[in-house]
Amino acid sequence: MKHQLQHFFKLTGFLLLTALAFACRKDTPFDEDSEQGAKTPSLTVKGLYVLNEGNWGSNKSSLDYYSYDDGKYTRNIFGTANPAVTLGLGDVGNDIKIYGAKMYVVVNGSNKVEILNASNARQVAKLEINNPRYVTFYKNFAYITSYDGYVAMVDTTALSTIKTKIMVGNQPEEMAVVGNKLYVANSGGYNYPNYDRTVSVIDLTNNTEIKKIDVAINLDRLRADQYGDIYVSSRGQMDQSGEYIINPSLFVIDTKTDLIKKDFKIPVSNFSINGDDAYLYSYSYATQKSTYVKLNVKDETIVSNNFITDGTETLIATPYGIEVDPSSGDIFLTDAKDYVSPGTIYCFDKAGKKKFSFTTGDIPAHITFLFK
């Protein structure tokens, strides 16, 4: 009996310590040396850039700017700032981020990354990468996924050359840095129905892939929260008739163990995380209907099944891009409409009420904030 009681108290103590450790991890924002993770509340937003994809082969990618100071929205500022670039921004703008004083614009169809002055959008350099997809940063390096199956590492001071290529899975998409690890969503998007289903983990101390985490097929969006967890979406798989045979979903990976800790079992087209709040939308091409879900990433629960609270979601035909202002909590959501006409960007306050909207270029897809 004495040994049984000792075992009981040891087990109880272990479970209590485990629970406290988990709670403490979720109560404490993750310390991360990258542009991902917790945002600094003291930063003041000066404006935002909108990257319009433009249809494949149309060479109609464009860059817009919204100024917080005067409320003015200006279209196609790249062409105005760079009149000597005769072909314009290029074909299919796929990602945009600001790091330091420079802005990186990934132009997928043109096989390049335009590196611009973040304050005026003037060209600083151009980097040639075959089939580039997304960009993220760690210390003095930019990491860019290529559908050729690698992550290109580029020195942000040299700019024009690739330092190394880190081989990952098939057709890698989005990335996020947590601590000294880079997480890469591998899609295998060209390989229907034999998609990839892994997240590559790269050790940034030596820039090598150290493992692959098996998650689900055709991975796409990937974000880090402020507690060191990774949220990654799966597009699922359809049959030839357009019916899902494997449903899309959203998964959470604990980067301390690199194990899946939760499957939300909800479809996600795109999402943005700001503090404890995650805003997700999903668009169904079959039904042409959308959902707008809000999550709490601290306790990993669904807060609302519609974060747009004033009924104006009916104005949005085809949601296509989303980001949250880290200082105000305003939600910016873009509408690609019919993919051939100018789109719209909407701003909602953090209570979910529409504040304003502007007409954009064709297929507005990606947003980045410029800070003062």
Rank of each mutant, 00 (worst) to 15 (best):
K2I: 13
K2N: 10
Q6Y: 14
L11F: 13
L17K: 07
R25V: 03
P29Y: 10
F30D: 06
D31I: 10
D31V: 13
K39S: 14
W56L: 15
S58C: 03
Y65V: 03
S67K: 11
G71V: 05
G88M: 11
L89D: 00
G93D: 11
N94L: 02
Y99H: 15
Y104N: 02
V113A: 04
N117Y: 07
S119N: 11
A121W: 04
T136S: 14
Y150D: 15
M153N: 08
Q171V: 05
M175D: 07
A176D: 07
S187F: 07
N194D: 11
T198R: 01
V199A: 02
K211F: 00
A216I: 00
I217E: 03
I217S: 01
L219P: 08
A224F: 05
S234A: 11
E243C: 00
D254A: 09
T257A: 11
T257H: 06
I260T: 05
K265L: 04
P267Q: 03
G275N: 12
G275V: 10
S282Q: 04
S284H: 10
T291N: 15
V293L: 12
K294V: 01
K298E: 13
T301S: 14
N306V: 10
T314N: 14
Y320R: 06
E323D: 15
D349V: 01
K354L: 09
T360H: 05
I363S: 11
P364H: 07
T368A: 14
F371V: 09
K372P: 07
